[in-house]
Every structure is written in C-alpha cells, then in structure tokens.
Amino acid sequence: MMTGFYIVISANNLVKKIVGLNVFQTSVFMLYISMGKVNGGTAPILVEGVTTYSNPLPHVLILTAIVVGVATTSVGLALIIRIKRAYGTVEENEFENQDDAI
C-alpha cells in the first residue's frame, strides 16, 4: 500500500500516478476484506450444513467500490488525454513550467 502512495507522490508521469492510485486503492480494499474474514468461515453463500460465514457487509461495500474506482480512474485518464493535447506532455514538471511561462 505504501508503494502505491509512494508512486502517487513521487512519480512525475501522470499515467504512473494513476496506476499508483489504483494500487493504493486495491490495498485499502484488501484491508476491508481482511476485516470481514472469520476463521473457519466460508464464503457468504448459503450451503446446507454450514453455519459460520464470513461477514458479507465489507464484501458488498468493496464490490461497489471497485466498480466506482474504475469509473473514476477512467475520468482521470480522460483528463490526462486532455492535458496531453493542451500541453503536449504528461510529465508534471514540464507542464508546470509551461504554466509559469504564461
């Protein structure tokens, strides 16, 4: 998870930043899912003869969060494409320099 965070703040390239953000996000998901785990439990699908199930609530939250995460990622990538067209680069320091020049 810290790797993702590191990529987000240290990477100069915007696409790499988005990848880092996704890594970050996936590790947060993993934290949630690990909280829902019950030792000796099975997946929360009713089967006869099984009484311990893992907690279904985090699963639901994370399931929707993954889809929403992809949706927001796509918006971010679309923004990157616009930045590329406006500035001709996706390196952070380069288009910041261009901004200063204006």
Binding site: N22, T26, F29, I33, S34, G36, K37, V38, G41, T42, A43, P44, I45, Y53, S54, P58, H59, I62, L63, I66, V67, G69, V70
Partner: peptide, 15 residues
C-alpha cells in the same frame, strides 16, 4: 482466500 468470492470476481473482471 479471504472468502470474498464476489469481490474477487469483480476485481478480476473490472480491476
């Protein structure tokens, strides 16, 4: 492995 089959399915197809 953490019993979240639905989430795994979503992560594999979406993520």
């Amino acid at each position: 492995n953490l019993d979240a089959v639905d989430v795994a399915f979503t992560e594999a197809s979406v993520g």
